Computed example of a mutant assay.
Amino acid sequence: MKTIVICSGGLDSVSLAHKVAAEDTLTRLVSFDYGQRHRKELDFAARAAERLGVPHDIIDMRPIGAALTGSALTDDIDVPDGHYAEETMRITVVPNRNAIMLAIAFGVAAANGDDAVATAVHGGDHFIYPDCRPAFTEAFDAMQKAALDGYADVRLSTPFVHRSKADIVTEGAKYGTPFAETWSCYKGGAHHCGRCGTCVERREAFDLAGVPDPTVYDDPDYWRAAIAAREGR
Results as ranks from 00 to 15, higher is better:
residue 3 T to I: 02
residue 4 I to F: 13
residue 5 V to A: 01
residue 8 S to E: 11
residue 11 L to S: 12
residue 12 D to N: 03
residue 15 S to Q: 07
residue 18 H to K: 08
residue 18 H to N: 06
residue 19 K to H: 14
residue 27 T to S: 14
residue 28 R to F: 01
residue 30 V to A: 02
residue 34 Y to C: 06
residue 35 G to R: 03
residue 35 G to F: 05
residue 37 R to K: 15
residue 43 D to L: 08
residue 43 D to N: 08
residue 43 D to T: 13
residue 43 D to R: 10
residue 45 A to G: 13
residue 47 R to V: 03
residue 51 R to P: 00
residue 56 H to I: 05
residue 57 D to K: 05
residue 59 I to F: 04
residue 59 I to D: 00
residue 62 R to C: 11
residue 63 P to D: 13
residue 66 A to T: 07
residue 67 A to R: 14
residue 68 L to W: 06
residue 68 L to K: 12
residue 70 G to Y: 04
residue 72 A to P: 02
residue 80 P to W: 10
residue 81 D to A: 15
residue 82 G to V: 10
residue 85 A to C: 05
residue 85 A to W: 14
residue 88 T to K: 15
residue 89 M to I: 00
residue 90 R to K: 14
residue 93 V to A: 00
residue 94 V to H: 10
residue 95 P to S: 07
residue 102 L to M: 14
residue 103 A to Q: 08
residue 117 V to Y: 10
residue 117 V to W: 07
residue 118 A to G: 10
residue 121 V to C: 09
residue 122 H to W: 02
residue 122 H to Q: 01
residue 123 G to W: 04
residue 127 F to L: 14
residue 130 P to R: 12
residue 137 T to L: 15
residue 137 T to G: 01
residue 137 T to A: 11
residue 140 F to C: 11
residue 145 K to D: 13
residue 146 A to Y: 06
residue 146 A to I: 14
residue 147 A to M: 08
residue 150 G to T: 13
residue 150 G to D: 10
residue 157 S to G: 00
residue 158 T to I: 06
residue 158 T to L: 03
residue 160 F to D: 02
residue 162 H to N: 14
residue 167 D to P: 00
residue 171 E to Y: 01
residue 171 E to P: 01
residue 177 T to K: 03
residue 180 A to M: 06
residue 183 W to S: 06
residue 185 C to F: 03
residue 186 Y to A: 03
residue 190 A to K: 15
residue 193 C to H: 10
residue 201 E to A: 15
residue 208 L to W: 00
residue 210 G to R: 13
residue 214 P to V: 04
residue 217 Y to A: 10
residue 219 D to R: 11
residue 224 R to P: 00
residue 226 A to M: 08
residue 228 A to M: 01
residue 229 A to T: 11
residue 230 R to H: 14
residue 230 R to P: 00
residue 232 G to F: 06
